[in-house]
């Protein structure tokens, strides 16, 4: 099984709308996090030999790793974390960004993480590392050759 996340939604914007819909089912953040943790558990297994410093996304409180590959003009992403909620957030992020073209990634602002109340601030590297991962995905996509 490939560690890279295959896109379920036709576009990044559809993925964000889908996530917003699914999260809105719950009235309570405890339930929402239960759902997010479940998404993390369903991530494709991340190869153990990738869980190293060269795959590490710098963050403060938990560890996040990722890998990217270009196939047929699309950027495929794999990711993992040692914390359960962060793994779930990684899953959400990869649902939005994995399998998209560099142009679509560039056009998809990670501000949706803040809009959906998933993180408090996009500017900080401390916290859960998810904002840093979103930035890194967009940096990687920016240097990939267009199809």
């Amino acid at each position: 099984m490939t560690p890279f996340v295959q896109p379920e939604d036709p576009s990044a914007a559809d993925a964000i709308a889908g996530i917003a819909d699914e999260l809105s089912i719950f009235d309570d953040w405890m339930d929402r996090y239960q759902y997010i943790i479940e998404l993390g558990r369903k991530l494709p297994p991340f190869p153990e030999d990738w869980a190293n410093d060269s795959h590490r996304v710098p963050g403060c409180q938990s560890r996040v790793w990722m890998e990217a590959a270009l196939r047929d003009g699309r950027v495929y992403l794999a990711g993992a974390s040692d914390a359960a909620i962060v793994s779930g957030l990684v899953a959400l992020l990869l649902r939005v960004y994995s399998g998209r073209t560099p142009a679509e990634i560039a056009a998809t602002d990670p501000v949706f993480l803040k809009d959906l109340g998933l993180i408090e601030a996009l500017s900080t590297n401390r916290g859960n590392g998810i904002a840093a991962m979103a930035r890194k995905i967009r940096e990687i996509a920016a240097v990939m050759p267009a199809a």
């Binding site: 996090y33 409180q61 040692d82 359960a84 909620i85």
Partner: peptide, 11 residues
């Protein structure tokens, strides 16, 4: 993870 605990408590 301690991060999970703190995130859930924060909510």
């Amino acid at each position: 993870h301690a991060h999970d605990i703190a995130t859930l408590l924060d909510r």
